[in-house]
């Protein structure tokens, strides 16, 4: 992601759409697994990028080029997600017309895994989703969540154990 920081520092408006192409899908599906709702994940994804763009517009290029962009986006997204839980009525500024009646591209097992993930505490759930659904490294998750690497590792480990127990109970 260092390359993306440098690209954004050089041409924010030119590369921001590229950033959305690269990270948008990961952000949406991570948020989708964390909040369990299509519309809310979509709102949070849009809001995260819009806030990120506004923030980047105010940063100097040295600051942008030294950023690790994806963990930074996740920090914004996770903070927004927490606020969303407090105020579920708010919605983003824009809704595309074509959105009405649009298909939800949920993978087949999504709902089943969301039910299992709901049994994890929020730290474990965040750590498991970012590590294994999105594929972030432990260091990146530590940066995104502001928690020490050792704690993140333990959260992933305990979260996976919990999922294993749940699957055994189902069988």
């Amino acid at each position: 992601m260092d390359e993306m920081g440098k690209a954004l520092a050089a041409d924010l408006d030119g590369f921001f759409p590229v950033l959305v192409d690269q990270i948008g899908r990961r952000l949406y599906w991570g948020l989708r697994r964390l909040c369990g709702d299509h519309q809310e994940a979509e709102d949070l994804t849009q809001e995260t990028f819009i806030r990120a763009y506004r923030a980047l517009s105010g940063y100097d290029s040295g600051r942008i080029s030294s950023m690790t962009v994806e963990p930074w986006l996740w920090t914004i997204a996770l903070n927004l997600g927490r606020n969303h839980l407090r105020d579920r009525s708010r919605r983003p500024t824009f809704v595309k017309l074509e959105e009405r009646g649009r298909e939800d591209p949920e993978p087949v097992d999504g709902a089943m895994w969301d039910r299992r993930l709901a049994h994890l505490n929020s730290h474990q759930k965040t750590a498991v989703v970012l590590r294994h659904v999105i594929g972030l490294g432990i260091g990146e998750i530590a940066e995104a969540t502001g928690r020490p690497e050792g704690t993140v590792k333990a959260d992933v480990h305990r979260g996976l154990n919990k999922l294993r127990e749940l699957i055994e109970e189902e069988a």
Binding site: K96, R102, P105
Partner: peptide, 14 residues
């Protein structure tokens, strides 16, 4: 395997 494509319209909304 729990990721699908980015839903239509999200990048336009951004």
């Amino acid at each position: 395997s729990l990721m699908g494509p980015l839903p239509d319209g999200v990048s336009e909304g951004i």
